[in-house]
Simulated scan of single mutants.
Amino acid sequence: MSSDAPGFELPLRLFMAFRVLIDELHAELARQGHPDMRPMYGFVLQAISRGSATAVDLGRTLGVSKQAAGKMIEALERVGYVERSPDPKDTRRKIVRLTRHGTDALARSAQIFDAMRNRWAKTLGHERLRALEADLRTMTPPDLWRLDVPGWFGGQ
Rank of each mutant, 00 (worst) to 15 (best):
S2M: 10
S3G: 15
S3P: 03
A5D: 10
P6W: 11
G7A: 15
L14D: 07
L14E: 09
L14C: 10
F15Q: 12
A17Y: 06
V20Q: 13
L21T: 11
I22E: 13
I22F: 02
E24I: 00
E24K: 10
L25G: 04
A27F: 10
A27W: 11
R31Y: 01
H34F: 14
D36L: 08
D36I: 00
M37R: 12
R38L: 12
G42M: 06
V44H: 03
A47N: 05
S49F: 08
S52V: 04
T61K: 03
T61R: 06
G63I: 01
V64D: 00
S65N: 01
S65F: 00
A69P: 03
A69L: 05
K71T: 04
K71S: 08
M72W: 08
R78K: 15
V79T: 14
G80C: 11
E83C: 02
R84M: 13
R84V: 09
P86I: 07
P86V: 09
D87H: 03
D90K: 10
D90E: 06
D90L: 08
D90G: 01
I95W: 06
V96L: 07
V96Y: 02
H101P: 05
G102T: 09
L106F: 05
S109P: 04
Q111V: 10
I112K: 07
R117E: 14
N118W: 10
K122D: 15
G125H: 01
H126C: 02
L132D: 08
E133P: 00
R137W: 08
T138L: 15
P142Q: 14
W145T: 06
W145G: 03
L147T: 02
L147C: 05
D148G: 04
D148H: 07
P150C: 01
W152K: 11
G154S: 12
G155V: 06
Q156T: 11
